[in-house]
Structures are given as structure tokens and as C-alpha cells.
Design a protein around this nucleic acid. Sequence first.
DNA 1: TTGAAAGCGGTACCAA
DNA 2: TTGGTACCGCTTTCAA
Lengths: 356, 356
Amino acid sequence: MKKKVTIRDIANQLGLSAMTVSLALRDHPRISAPTKERIRAAMKELNYEPNQVARALATGKSNLIGVIVPNSSDPYYAEVIRAIEDAASAAGYHVLLANGSYEMERYTERVKDMIALHMRGIIAAPPFISEKPKLPSFWQNLLHSDFDVVLINRQLKPPIFHQVAADYMDGVRMVVEKLAELGHKRVAYISGQPAMLPIRQRLAAFKRWAKKYDFDDDPKLFQYAELSFHGGYEAGQQLWATLKKKPTAVVTFSDVVAVGLLRFLEVTGVAIPGEVSVASFDGTAVSEFTHKPLTTVYTPMYEIGRQAFDLLLGGMKNKFQAPQNVILPVELKLRESIGAAPNVLKKTRLKSARVR
Amino acid sequence: MKKKVTIRDIANQLGLSAMTVSLALRDHPRISAPTKERIRAAMKELNYEPNQVARALATGKSNLIGVIVPNSSDPYYAEVIRAIEDAASAAGYHVLLANGSYEMERYTERVKDMIALHMRGIIAAPPFISEKPKLPSFWQNLLHSDFDVVLINRQLKPPIFHQVAADYMDGVRMVVEKLAELGHKRVAYISGQPAMLPIRQRLAAFKRWAKKYDFDDDPKLFQYAELSFHGGYEAGQQLWATLKKKPTAVVTFSDVVAVGLLRFLEVTGVAIPGEVSVASFDGTAVSEFTHKPLTTVYTPMYEIGRQAFDLLLGGMKNKFQAPQNVILPVELKLRESIGAAPNVLKKTRLKSARVR
DNA sequence: TTGAAAGCGGTACCAA
DNA sequence: TTGGTACCGCTTTCAA
């Protein structure tokens, strides 16, 4: 262990050549069984571990993949990363983790790092702000390089890299339709970091559907929040401070934010869902265990990670495959945080009273 | 971008030698300023990126560190990882992430991977089950190798590797004393995966302190739970199903579990803290935003990660430094989930009644 | 079935 | 201040 054992040490000890050992290592058929056995024994004895760095240099390929996400400690991405690591590990790959940035330039630096480190490919969530981003020349070059990229949660149209995301747009529809069905008209929306494409897309989709269902058109119903529990709490404060007529429902772009909001509402003494319904996105584990379990658009985070890894490896096997656009279905989890709009309840009561 | 530009391409283009370029790259004083300028320009023009793999092979050092944790998606470790990545990134290092295993043998494989990949060192949380683990020969060898290891949340006595952890033992004391002070005698404890040393230590410490404060000595007050929201919920069910006389307080080994428990208690209609107090460990972000904010032993997760990284780099600079044992202080966050034991409350009322 | 030798893209020693 | 060259440990082509 003191000094590293190399392939040549083994070869010398057995009076063989380095290449014989090299081939035996990888169980090449050209080497005879007994020789392999001797080599294997010597490897055990000398405690040999192949140097992956040397191998990577010689072959030009490593078994490392890079993962660059906005924030690895966010439960959403933590889960995606977990999935990627599981898949990678099962396939004999390893994951290099990096936290990206909201600035394109800094983000690009991280990608360059990955290239310099000769990753086999990367799974990334770059801060694109539109579906047709004006790609910096660096990304253009990436397109024509042999470096594979899979985008997660970044739906470009048309796809220029492989990309996998969930059908958030459909999720927005589900939420809005459900709220409309429950009689809500005054619905607030808490959005996040506008530098992120999927956040913008979700907001835009909400506005479209809100219009369609004739929700109140009050700009004060829209609020930004940091992606944190505290951010959700503050956004709630803002909303309640600025809105004279309170909303009957609030939709947040993430469970994390919704949990903070829930807490704010509780502290403020607002009944959920009696006075205000709350719905969110993601469906992270916590959403099921909040005070009032959250109605949320469940996103298959683990599956996103797994498929991203598969695409990366698949893409590496077949360079000429057109960029794939994988969109996984979302699911509206109806839970206690949502209910009929208060005014509707009243009407219903009146009606039933009349019926009697 | 098509084919990689090497140091030699640049040298040829400028009529210099490879080594001049190599030195210029690292801003070596031996190279004259104008030459450096020319080289820098050529590097820009040709879009040169140094190959870190080749560099690592040549120098025998890489700027990669390995991180092996039990579960990277657990909020506790997600935060530790985030800290390590931040520190590493700031220092020009990169993080290779791996999820370990509860089995020593599988875990050891992950460490071997890291060695084969020629990491600069690793930060690890191996499944040691005692403070003086019988280290497999592999770990023994590690001790005498030039491969650096920093343990997190694994306090060995005496330390054989650098190790950084929080003072959980003190945290246990704080919680127990507080509960005793509030008049609790019947306190349940929900523990986790017994294969993990800190979990065992915490349980043992709780038992010691519970004895000291004369808590009820009923084995049914001890329950195991998976480290998940759901695990906490189930442990609550178990506790309530098996205990005829319910506890007046429950301590859980992790916030995550406490959140699940809180939900169970709520569903079951148990008042918090009126009927049952809840306290936990970790102090992850969510603990402040639960229905009843959690009383919890805050652990400086981010700081643990940061210091682990510092120790790793420090250790690499100074191989002869004795293994450091860093223990960070914890902090008892007193929040609404905890209150006086019900019987105490009653007594107090009686007393005040009498006084009048 | 096995060996010799030339890389992979840098670094570093020694000489000029 | 610069260049020549061996080498890091493994892979791979071409001979033997």
C-alpha cells in the first residue's frame, strides 16, 4: 500500500509483459486461462488496484459523469442526484457533483471544468432563460463536440441536446382546473427565481390558464419567493400585507415554499383549506407530512435522474441519434390543503338550506 | 473543439517547446512576460483547455476529493455535501459523490473506487458500529498509505483518522435535562439504523441520562424507525399501539423522523405539546416550519462539511500531523413542540388554586 | 498466445 | 530564459 503497485510490477514478478497483464485484467480471451489465474493471484497478493487515471488518459474515456444542478441541497435536486448516482454506480460510473450558478458565465465555467476533467458526459440544468436561448459560442461548440450533454428540466424547442423533464405545463393545467372546479377565482401565485426557464414557463402557463378560467386579474396576486421554507413564509407575508382582498387559494412553484407558506398562514390564523387553499409543485416527500398534507403536482424526480443517466449513456453509444426530448407525466396529488372556495361553500350552504 | 488542442499544438504554432507552454500555463516566473502573452493569446485562439487527467497522471495528484455518505438525499447530508462542494469549489477542487452502504464490505468497495480513481483524499462516514471498530485490513492499510481520510460523524477513540462531528452527547444531555425540568418522566425515544455509530451513541447516551433523571424504565418506550418521514409516522403508530400508558414526550434521533411523528400525533388527535412533547436532533431547515416548530438539537451541518474539507486539505499539506478530533458545539433550539408534562401542569394548577 | 514499443497529454529534471 | 527527453500507468497496434 505504501507505494502503488503497477501492472508492470505484476508482469515482472511473473516474468510476463505488461500488456499480458493489462489484457488479463479485462479478462481478454487472448490470454490463456492458467496465465490469467496466475495474474489474478499476483494481483491479490500485491494488492493491486488499476489506476483509473492512467486508463482514462490512455483510452480518452473515463467512467466519470458530471452533474451540475442549481442547488444540490434542495430536496428536489437531492433526489435527482440520488437517482443519477444509483444508476451510475450500478453501471460502473461515478458522479462528479457541482453546483451551478444563475449566471450563465459562471455556469459555463463549471462545464468547462467538467470538460477539462474529461468527464464522459454531463447532466446539467443550465440557467437558460428562454426556450430558444441565444447560446453562447461555448455551448454552440459543445453541440459539435464529442462531449455529451443531457439537460434536465430545461425544455428547449426544438431540443438541441438530449433533455428530460416532467410535464409541468400539464401540471399547471391540472392545478388550475381543480381550483376552478372548486370555485376559486382569486388565486395567488408564488413564483421563484425568474432566471430559471422552468420557473418562467410555469408562471406563464399559470397566467394563461388563469385567464382562461377567468381568475382575478390582479398583479398583486403574483409574488416572488426564494426557494426555501423561509422564502415561502415571507412571500405569504408580502401577499397578506399588500392584498386588501385576500386570495382564496395560493399556488406555489415548489413544496418547500408551500411549507413556509403553510406556516405563515397558521401563525396568521388563516384556516386551511377553509379560508385559503394551498397547492404546489414537486411532490417531495415532505408534502405528505405537513400539517395539512399538500395538494401538489408530483414530479417523478427519481425517474428524471434515472432517465437522464440512461440518455447520457445511450447517447454516448449512439452519437448520431437525434436529441431526444423525454417528458415524463406528472400527477396531481389531491390532499387536504385544498378545498372549495369559501364563497362557494356559503352558496352551497344556502342552497341546501333552501332545499330543506 | 472537434479534436482536443494540446500543449504541443500551441508550442508548434508558436515555435516553442511544450514545456515552455506548460510552465506559462501555470504562470511560472521562468517564462518571460511577452512569451507568456503570446502563449496566452494562442491558448485563447485555439480554445485550449488543459487536460486534468494527463496532469493528474503526471503529477500523481488530482484536484478531486471523494465524499461517501450514507444517503446523499437525506437533508442532513445534503447540507454537509453542499458545504463540502462550496469549499472545494472555492479551493479549485471537485467533489466525487458516492452513496455508501450499511455493510462494511460494500462500503469498502466504494473507498477502493476512490483510490483507484486517484482522489486527493476522501471525506467519509463509514458504517463503523463501535468507537473502537475492528478495522478490516483494508482500513489498516489506509492508515499507513498516503491517502488522506477525514471521518464525519464518526467519533473513534482515540481518533485514527482526522474526524469532525458535533457534540451529540452534549445534545442528548440538553434534551433530557430540559424534559426533566419540564417534569417529564415517561419519555419515549425513537432511534434509527443501529448499524451507524452516532445513532448507537445517541441512544446509549439517552439511556444513561434517562436513568439519571429517573425516567420510566420501560423497554417499550424505545422504538426503531427508518430515516424518513414515513418512518417517523410508523414509529409513532408502533409506540401508540404497544404502549398502554402513553409517553408524555418523545425524542427522535432526527428531524425527518420527528416530522413524520408530528403528523401521526396530529392525525391521532394528540395535542402537542399539551399531551405530548416532541424533541429531535439535527435542526434541519424544516424543523422551524413544522406545524408546531420543533425543539431540536441543532447541528452545524454546513460547518461540519466545511471543516472536514479544511482538515482534508490541511492534512494533505502536513502528513505528520496527528489525527485531529474536531467536535463542534450543538445548540438546543427551544421551540413550540415542547412543554410541561401534563401531570405537572395539573399539579401546578392545583397549587395555584390552593394559593388563591 | 504473448511481447515490444509507441502513444495519451501533461510534468519535471537536466542541459544549453 | 528556453529546449530535450524521460516518465506517470495503462492501452493498443504490430510483430513474433
